[in-house]
Write a protein that binds this DNA or RNA. Structure first.
Lengths: 187, 187
DNA sequence: TTTACTGTACCGTCTGGACGGTCTTGTCAA
DNA sequence: TTGACAAGACCGTCCAGACGGTACAGTAAA
């Protein structure tokens, strides 16, 4: 076995995200992370030999979680519609309060190259969507609208009311399911 | 007179953006900016008494430019359609290569609160759009799709080919101009 | 004995920014 | 016209603190 005493890695990862959120993305120091995780600095560096490795792990861990959630959501979705699953999963994440991914900014500040895995992930996802979605224009609209919402939540732009957001999400789901018009003019 | 010797401020602002892009958002140091701008560190601190003030000025300067460009674009737009102007202006920005706003990440790293003016700007813009756009659902879709594209360009996710991007933009323009369906099914 | 740490001490580097000095330009009395 | 002086714009240096990372001795569980 690898970890008799420790799920330390997970604790450290979570602590890093917390520190990033609370101290600001540019003030993520190893000392602070270690303290927050209830681990000595030596212990932190034992698990992640450098700050860069920590950041990398942060990104990869997040991507893995999202991936798994996406597959799960898809299974729960009618006809395994990937686009619909993507919309739903994303919408669910946007509903969660405050604690989004401020750690991303830490990673970028450290070195923009840490985004590379995310770029690859996003590209692969989009290719899958392209292959599985019949109406390409609808896909474009839906995908980018979702990314727009993600961006708004990431930067904490709260432009929409609760109702408005739900309305947008249902429009998107409707487009994702094949209706070209965002919603066939209810009233 | 106020500035016999100097348009230094603008040079410094531009230099800061350059340094942010080249050295990475987390490595924006005053020394580097001063050197890049051809100004001593003392001179820099004279113009911007602290790093925080520099960042603030960076944000405000950018917002002001965007604002002006938007009003101009609107004047050139049929019936002064604000949403269409917004789509067009944004699309134009996305076409420009590499040098987008990496400095934003510097500001966030320094202190996330520097985004506050952007939040306000975005909120006011959205309110104006809401007031001027008859079809609210179409507005939602268009606005967030544009923000999605902005996000993709900011993070340098190049998911779309040139053609695909143009297709999306024209879909958006068409929605912005009142057609509910993203484009009346060409083929 | 090995693994997975803890705790402490320490080093070299970088950074914001305070400070004092300098050069230029403008103003105005004589 | 000229000389004195003030203010504005900027230069160069210095420094205290923070940070990433190393080294190493100790320890407790498996």
């Amino acid at each position: 076995m690898k970890k008799p005493r420790a799920n330390s890695r997970e604790k450290i990862l979570a602590a890093a995200a917390d520190v990033a959120r609370e101290s600001g993305p540019g003030n993520l120091s190893l000392d602070a992370v270690a303290q927050r995780a209830g681990v000595s600095k030596g212990g932190l560096l034992y698990n992640f030999p450098s700050k860069a490795k920590l950041m990398q792990a942060l990104v990869e861990h997040h991507l893995q979680e999202f991936q798994e959630a996406l597959e799960t959501a898809r299974r729960d979705c009618a006809q395994g519609n990937l686009l619909a699953a993507y919309v739903k999963l994303s919408a669910k994440k946007f509903e969660e309060d405050q604690p989004p991914s401020a750690w991303i900014f830490s990673a970028i500040a450290e070195n923009p190259d840490f985004l590379a895995p995310i770029r690859i992930f996003q590209r692969e996802l989009f290719d899958r969507l392209k292959a599985e979605t019949p109406d390409f224009k609808a896909l474009l609209l839906t995908y980018f609208a979702v990314e727009g919402m993600r961006s708004a939540s990431l930067f904490d732009f709260q432009v929409l009311s609760e109702q408005e957001r739900q309305s947008l999400v249902s429009s998107l789901l409707s487009v994702a399911k094949g209706n070209l018009a965002p919603v066939p003019a209810v009233a």
